[in-house]
């Protein structure tokens, strides 16, 4: 009996001991937890897992990664928000939280967090089923205007890349199409190849190999210049120059921590991620797959996020797809 009491006493003391040593030692003195908003094998997951080993080397501690999915990423974000602001928990996220308040998904979003590093962004590619007659973005858009409500687009749900890009395209002049929500880019791309959808917008990373193999037809990249990984695909601005005001636009992947973490921890994390993201192995991986490495933090990252949110929220509002008016959320109109 004595033994058991001693053991329990020792266990109870252990966290206290840990806390005092943590305070005495410099950050980070133990393993970190990285919560990934999206599922295993997805773009956020893969980008996060590819950069983390390089960051661990710079940080001198392990980052234990864990997928916490659901609620278009709101579950993972809320979970991290509920943990202590000690810098030991990171959120590996994507662009979605910037639209949570506009789409009434969650009351928490990135305003409660500070960006540690924006890792990379993907460029949307507009692709069609390979048997479809369209050979340019203009032909697709004009066909949708001629045949309203007949042409099928695979989407990834409200606020997703496909939904926003089609709304942006419709800002050049309205058209009506069928939008079928799938569970993600992968399932959408599968349906596209099976002929169950006619066109969709996919991140460059997910689609590059399918384009190269000729399984799908790339009509345009949603960018103001061609991509090095898809040099023969024209930019969307070639057909619709007015889209340039909305660019650059697309999914992006980054790492966040709670806003009120200690300044020392934030500086160490920012520096470690800057080094890790600059690792040539990671940059080659990203660019080879058609992504654009960002490696931005601090004010530059805040500005990027604010602009992205403003452009996207207002285009959804104009299309009637926003559930809360961005004006009431103090999201400024894009200038």
């Amino acid at each position: 009996m004595m033994h058991r009491r001693m053991l329990l006493g020792g266990l109870a003391a252990a966290p206290l001991l840990g806390a005092t040593t943590a305070r005495a030692q410099a950050f980070p003195s133990r393993d970190l937890l990285g919560v990934i908003q999206w599922g295993a094998g997805g773009a956020t997951d893969v980008t996060g897992r590819a950069v983390t080993p390089h960051v661990e080397a710079a940080l001198g501690q392990k980052i234990v990664l864990q997928n916490r999915t659901g609620g278009t990423g709101a579950i993972g974000l809320t979970y991290v928000h509920g943990l202590p602001s000690d810098g030991y928990t990171l959120l590996y996220g994507a662009e979605n939280p910037l639209l949570y308040k506009v789409l009434n998904i969650s009351r928490l979003d990135y305003t409660d967090f500070t960006p540690i590093c924006l890792l990379a962004r993907s460029v949307p590619v507009i692709v069609a089923n390979k048997d479809k007659p369209w050979n340019s973005l203009k032909e697709l858009v004009e066909d949708m205007r001629r045949n309203p409500g007949r042409i099928r687009m695979a989407s990834t749900g409200p606020g997703g890349q496909a939904h926003v890009v089609s709304t942006m395209l419709a800002s050049t002049g309205p058209f009506r199409h069928i939008s079928i929500p799938f569970d993600g880019e992968g399932p959408g791309l599968t349906a596209l190849q099976g002929g169950h959808a006619d066109w969709m917008t996919v991140g460059s990373g997910a689609v590059a190999e399918h384009v190269r193999a000729g399984r799908v037809k790339a009509l345009a990249v949603f960018n103001d210049a061609p991509l090095p990984s898809l040099p023969n695909v024209p930019p969307a601005t070639a057909d619709y120059p007015e889209l340039a005001r909305l660019m650059p636009w697309g999914s992006f992947y980054g790492v966040w921590a709670k806003k009120d973490i200690p300044a020392e921890a934030r500086e160490k994390l920012v520096a470690a991620f800057r080094t890790g993201t600059a690792n040539p192995q990671f940059t080659q991986l990203m660019t080879g797959n058609g992504n654009v490495v960002m490696n931005t933090s601090g004010a530059e990252a805040e500005a990027f996020l604010a602009r992205w949110q403003s452009v996207t929220a207002w285009i959804l509002q104009e299309a009637g797809a926003a559930r809360t008016d961005p004006a009431t959320l103090n999201i400024p109109r894009p200038s």
Partner: peptide
Amino acid sequence: AVIIGALFIHGLKPGPM
């Protein structure tokens, strides 16, 4: 799906090619 991610991280190009 996870294996596809693994191939990608290892520098291979999972896809039809």
